[in-house]
């Protein structure tokens, strides 16, 4: 078990959340609460950088979907960056790879 750790930084495009550890039943509520507290302006891009994420279960997927809903409610967009291979495989099976914008990384040049 790797405890979830989330760091937040601001990019020119909007907030970037870097997720480390396990996004599972224990950790997912933390991401959901953090995202729910984010103020997004219309046209901004919320980036979830999953490069440091080690595990993601269905609770984690639900948190990602909730983040997408939150962004869209603010007329902002959302993207997942540096998605680990196994999570990418699952996103493919459940069709979420077409619903999320996927970025290779969350660097300053990153954009939709």
């Amino acid at each position: 078990m790797n405890l979830l750790k989330i760091t937040t930084r601001s990019a020119t495009t909007g907030p970037v959340l870097e997720i480390f550890g396990d996004l599972d039943y224990a950790g997912a509520p933390e991401l959901r609460e953090l995202v729910a507290g984010l103020t997004l302006r219309p046209g901004q891009l919320l980036i979830l950088d999953l490069g440091g994420m080690e595990f993601c279960d269905s609770s984690g997927i639900t948190a990602l979907i909730a983040a997408r809903s939150h962004a869209h409610a603010a007329r902002a967009d959302i993207a997942l960056a540096a998605v680990p291979a196994n999570t990418l495989r699952i996103l493919g099976i459940i069709g979420l790879d077409q619903v999320f914008t996927l970025l290779p990384d969350s660097g300053p040049a990153a954009g939709p």
């Binding site: 997927i61 979907i65 493919g92 459940i94 069709g95 979420l96 077409q98 619903v99």
Partner: peptide, 16 residues
């Protein structure tokens, strides 16, 4: 059946 989306997350889901 590629491209089918989780059922219940979007108002209108693509299904394969």
């Amino acid at each position: 059946t590629p491209g089918g989306l989780l059922v219940g997350i979007l108002p209108s889901a693509p299904l394969a």
